[in-house]
Amino acid sequence: MTRAPLNRWWVKAAAQGALAAAPRAAALDDALRRRMRGAYLSEDYFLSKWRHVTQHLRALGNPGDRPLLKTRAVEIGTGWFPIVPLGLAVHGGTVVTIDTGQHLDAARVRLAMQRLSQLEAAGTITAASPERMARLRELLLAPPPSSAAQLLEPMGIRPVIADAQDLSQVPEAHGSNLLVSNNTLEHIPAEILAGIFREFLRVGSKSARMSHYIDLADHYAGFDPRITEFHFLTMSPTRWRLTNNRLGFQNRLRIGDYRELLSQTGWRVTREKLTRRPTRSLDGLRLVPPYDQVPIKELLVVKAHLVTTRA
């Protein structure tokens, strides 16, 4: 009798869940990811994030080839490579990038800076601040520093470990006119997202705009091709609690939920770009409540870029 192959997504979920229960789980997970990924940054990955830079600039009405004048930006979800903060910085902006944990290190920041320098020199990307580009290249020629902050702060970027629901101790964030995220919001529970949006409203300038990239697909589908981007919508709340974990948390919010959260917290969506899958993508799936009641047009959205202003 042939044994059915293990579901790869479940193996990953179980391994993450076990790690999440360990003492100092976040630090262990971070160390494991560093070892598995190594110090490598592909050109394709860099350019995928650079497209976010371009769209964040356009949220301010900047086509991407003009210097940012008096622009103060806040990013949540710094991650491993600070490509978006560097992109905003070489256009002349100052940036506070916020995360709940320390993922940056000097080696990976240098990799991001080197890629930026190479691609700008080749004409593949544009940087509107020659002064900042010159500063970046000076930093790359200098002896390697011991910390990520020593590379970023001369570029006008301050990395901060904080809860974005309370930025009272981050004065550089106050008066910001651009607040962004890049495939981060889907990893945050709805009630915390509401707190972040309210805090952004409080610290943002009168003309503040938010620009958020959101991945609404089941992230396990990228690991296991036998499931679809909508697979997690077939799991009951009880089963999903067993599968979901704090190291790989996914909130399962749909596009309508994000619109509602933004409206409730004082923001108005002025522009949105949505990526939808065809209706046949749902064939054979038994959606559980409340997803079986979501309008199909909303349900099929797997990626979104939302731009908002104060309501």
Rank of each mutant, 00 (worst) to 15 (best):
M36E: 09
A73C: 15
N177Y: 05
L201N: 11
T228I: 04
A190V: 11
L193H: 09
T243M: 14
T234Y: 05
M36W: 05
P5L: 08
P189N: 08
A13F: 10
A173K: 10
E272D: 01
G204L: 11
L282Y: 00
R268G: 04
R310P: 06
E191P: 02
A22D: 03
L41T: 08
N251E: 06
R35E: 02
F197W: 11
D283M: 02
S281Q: 00
G204Q: 07
D163M: 11
L60G: 00
A4F: 05
T228C: 02
F223R: 12
Q16R: 14
T243C: 14
S236K: 07
G77N: 09
R137Y: 03
Y213M: 12
R72D: 04
D166P: 11
E120P: 04
P171I: 11
L111E: 01
S181R: 01
S117H: 13
A13T: 13
D105G: 01
F230H: 05
A148R: 02
R209T: 09
S211E: 06
R51E: 08
V96Q: 07
P237C: 13
Q169I: 09
S211H: 01
G204R: 07
I196V: 15
Y220V: 08
V90M: 08
R198W: 06
L179F: 06
D44Q: 15
P171H: 10
Y40S: 11
Y40L: 07
